[in-house]
Every structure is written in C-alpha cells, then in structure tokens.
Design a protein around this nucleic acid. Sequence first.
DNA 1: GTCTATATGATGATAGAC
DNA 2: GTCTATCATCATATAGAC
Lengths: 203, 203
Amino acid sequence: MTTNEASRPSRRGPYAKSTERRQAILVAAHAVFAAHGYRGGSLQDVADHVGMSQTSLLHYFPSKSDLLLAVLNWRDSITGDGTIPPDPEETLVDAVIRQARFNEEIPGVIELYTVLCAESVTDAHPGREYFTERFELLRRSYARRFRQLAEEGRLRPGVKPEAAAASLIALWDGIQTQWLLSPESVDMAGCLRGYLELVVLPE
Amino acid sequence: MTTNEASRPSRRGPYAKSTERRQAILVAAHAVFAAHGYRGGSLQDVADHVGMSQTSLLHYFPSKSDLLLAVLNWRDSITGDGTIPPDPEETLVDAVIRQARFNEEIPGVIELYTVLCAESVTDAHPGREYFTERFELLRRSYARRFRQLAEEGRLRPGVKPEAAAASLIALWDGIQTQWLLSPESVDMAGCLRGYLELVVLPE
DNA sequence: GTCTATATGATGATAGAC
DNA sequence: GTCTATCATCATATAGAC
C-alpha cells in the first residue's frame, strides 16, 4: 500500500531504523490530527512530537496529504477496518457492544476518526475518497450480517437490512460525537444496545 | 446577542446599509465555512464573496471567531435551533420526516453543521461551547417529547426516553454525514422513519 | 538520513489616510 | 465605513551541505 517493502525481490527492504521512524511519525501524526484536525495540525507539530525536523519528516512522507492517508491506513491495520468479523462464538450484538466499550478506552482514536471524517466532506480534502469508500464497505458488511439474521428469522419484521446497516453506522458515529463533547452525559454502549435490541429479536 | 441594536434607547441604531452588509457577510461566511470548514476557510474568501476588502469585513466582525459564532447564531435564528416545536396538528414522527426531507433541499446548511460540529471537538475551537450546549438542549427537548409519548403508552416498552433522544439526534447527524459523501446511496428520511417506527407505537 | 537555509505564499489582525 | 499598506506569523515544500 503505502510502504514499498519487498516490492522487488532483488532489492533489499528499508532499514529497520527507517521503519521505526515511520512508526513514530505515524503515532505523532495520529495525535496531532486528532487534536487539531488535518488543516489545523501542522507538519511542524508532528515533527516536534517525534523530535525531528520538519524537513526530515518530509523525507519519509513526501507531502502532508500522503501522511494523512498513511495515518488512516495505519489505523485500519491496527484497529481493523471497522467491520465486525463473523465469529460463531459471539453474536453481532455482543460484538458491537464490546467494540463500543473498547472505544471508550481510546478517545484519541475516536477523535481522529470523527474529526477527519467530517472534515473530509469539505472541498478537495485528501481523505474524502477514503471515507466514502469506508462507508460503502461498512454498509455492505453490516447489511450482509443483518440479512443473515433475517434469514434466521431474527430481524424484526419490516426492518430492511440495508437501512439497518446505514442506521447502525450513523448512530454509532453520531453518538461518538456527542460523547466527545459530553462524555459524562452520553452512554455510547447503551445507545447502541438499545438500537440493536429493537432491531434484532432475541434468540 | 451579537448585535447591539437598541442597546440604549437614546442612541440611534445602526444604519440600514450596515445591517444589510452584515447580512451579506453572514451569507458569504456561511457558504465559505460550509465548503472549507472554519480553519480551512479564510476571511479573504469571505470578503471576496461579498465583494469587499478583508479589512472592511473585520470592521463588522472584530475577529474570525466572532464571525463564526455570528454565523451559527444567525443560522439558528433562520432555521430554528433544531428542536421540533410541539404542534397538535402534526405528530413527532411526521415533523421529523418533514424536516429531514426539507434538509435535503439545503445541502449547504447541512454541510456547515456537520463540518463545524466535528471540527469543534478539537483543541480550543471557538464553536465548541455552542455545539456542546446545543446537544444538551436537543437531548432535553427530544427526551421531553418521548416522555410525553410514554405517558400516552405510545413508546415501545423498554425504551428509555433519554436514550431515544440521544439516539435520534445521533442517527440524524450520522446519516447526514453519510449522505453528504454519497447522496445517491443514502436515504436520510427513510432511516429516520425506520428508527421512529421502531420506537413509537402506532396510534 | 538529517540537517540549515530558504523559497514561496497565505493567514489573521492592526494602523492610519481619506 | 472603506480603503491601502503592512505586520508578524505560520504554512508546505525544496535545495543542497554534511
């Protein structure tokens, strides 16, 4: 994707130190973009966090937008792409609740996602394509899960799997925004459970 | 609020031309902030839209953050603060659907709201207090409506009014974001109706 | 690979003439 | 009330020494 390791078998890959540096930059950029947004965060900010010069940083990522996309893809490779992998041991409802609770432990990651997602709908934002495709992927993925439940007769009659998928994603994103602004007065996991208990019939 | 008209009875108010100018600036700033966000939009952009110099603009609004707050409050005074006024002629469900359909006609207003709301959760954003208070107001307002429905026995058993309020607002905001990115593949009004039909029992 | 130095441009805001 | 001129800052990005 963004790295070029093993692109040609006869060439040796990047130095170990180099990949460490890239890692450190990604961590710092994640924090900066989460706290200030893409436009509000500067390369200098990121460089300061890592403890290197701004020009050295641009040696690893040729431009600011490259760095943004690298952060987004790196986040996916760490936390998963947001879809819930099917697991026969765990119901969809439980998996969603578990993920929501886990998210409460990593507010920085939520903040990055929320801020950049909305920022990406503006003009020529470099993250727009990423978020557009991500939502399409998520909608397809959840719709598939809801269709499975429908086949088992466990989806409430009248509920359309596609609409439920878009709604669950929307509810999740929206409640995260409210939670970031007022963590004490919003119960993320509770809201998601409330919705899923309406849509999914008990076994 | 932001204007000082009629602050002292013995002083004459601002010139008519002045208020017209302020109006024009607010309209332009609304468009610019919606398209580029607060940080991404510049005073120069706004001034160009109005056809005046950037310094003249600062004569009407002493700083960029003042302009932002003026835009947000102006938007409320035009479109309402987002709460649904009780109307014996119209059910809550119908009112929400009607508002959602209307919103599809004014994508710029939705974009402004979505972009600035998420941007406001970053660091020292001048709009943060506005959005925090707005969400608290909205949650209280919708919770009251759901409690009324509960007293009439029209809220599905097990649904908590406060949770339903936060969820409806979250769903609405979240689906707007998806709609801004892919208008053709998201049915805003349909999603909201789907949720409300789950929560509110038919008469 | 990392640095200094710098190109180049935009930003929000101020001062003062008219 | 509106302008020109300008300040002080900050941005992304590039060139070239070591």
